[in-house]
Design a protein around this nucleic acid. Structure first.
Lengths: 188, 188
DNA sequence: TTACAAAACTAACGATTGTTAGTTGAAATT
DNA sequence: AATTTCAACTAACAATCGTTAGTTTTGTAA
């Protein structure tokens, strides 16, 4: 599908946001990257804030939906974690700029959008925490503090976007296998 | 030791930078947080950029020094990784604002400072990579791609600052033990 | 060819940015 | 008591910010 002009603007902005952060990118920067004047952007979008919230909500919804789907499946906790790792890799490959902005610039959202995204992240983490706790309860996962496990895995997954370029020729499925192995079975 | 006025400014700025990012914090914001006017800041510092570079170089040096010290010790690769995890936790506990700024705003450094910090990070990563490769070579570490291992561990350690507040009453030494266990031996 | 809509333009606005200059009062030193 | 240093102040600067209004160009359909 050919992207609309609005989608083009958002994509170009995403790339700049990833590079320098939302606050350091001006509307004139975005316009220049598209070879038009800043005022022309307003024929397609309502303002800078709309770019930010569109960008973030798109990927935040993707994570939330996939995660709650996994929660409902009938799998062992370890299988669910495996799936969480895989969907993170899938989404990162397709939305790496959006993830950068979600991670680094969510606090610049305003009004309801801010509340909504914070809520989605909390729900996401709570779902993940439940899976881990269940795994510990039934002995599949070592009796470490669930918070340490949650944080260790989630940190790696959330910052995968930083590493996505260097990934280079590495196949996505190989990456999935390796990350599942490292994160679940360790390195020793 | 009582901090100098300059150190106070840098600390207050660090806290604001952690919260909203370097570009979203104005000199007037910093001044207001100190109950003085923006122009008064210039009696103590040369500009906003000096705050940033002081903040970042301080913690970047700490990491670089500790890492190269570990490289020289006579330990097994796994023992060295254990030490790397521990020094990350130690530095994070003491410099959590600096780490936030290093992670998120290093690209706003200018001139030599930028080059220097990028170089330090590359050296750091290269040292870490060497330890991992040696561990794989002598069979202590599973034959995964070293890059995946490096990235997984480093992502967790680098974003530990985000989680430091929630850590709450958890003892630092317990945290060290747990993280070493999770990162090296896995969770299953 | 004309009519219309889409998407660009110029020009400007009020606000905010980092920073400088010059001044003032208080504290420390001579 | 006189002097110097420190650290705050007011006022202002040029530049840049997001955004608006009004106009012109471009492409498409009748």
């Amino acid at each position: 599908m050919k992207p609309t002009r609005k989608q083009e603007i958002i994509q170009v902005a995403a790339s700049l946001f990833k590079e320098k952060g939302y606050s350091a990118v001006s509307m004139r920067d975005i316009a220049q990257a598209m070879d038009i004047k800043a005022a022309s952007l307003y024929n397609h979008i309502s303002g800078k804030q709309e770019i930010l919230s569109t960008l973030i909500l798109e990927v935040a919804k993707a994570f939330t939906n996939k995660m709650s789907a996994i929660t409902l499946e009938t799998l062992t906790p370890l299988q669910k974690i495996e799936k969480v790792i895989e969907i993170h890799i899938d989404i990162t490959v397709n939305y790496s700029e959006n993830i950068a902005t979600l991670n680094n610039d969510w606090m610049h959202l305003e009004g309801d959008d801010l509340e909504r995204v914070v809520k989605m992240r909390e729900d996401y983490e709570e779902n993940f925490r439940s899976i881990i706790k269940q795994g510990v309860a039934q002995g599949d996962i070592k009796p470490q503090h669930p918070e340490v496990i949650l944080f260790s895995i989630l940190s790696t997954l959330r910052t995968l976007y930083l590493w996505n370029e260097k990934r280079g020729k590495m196949d996505v499925n190989v990456l999935k296998k390796d990350m599942v192995s490292v994160l679940i079975k360790g390195i020793a």
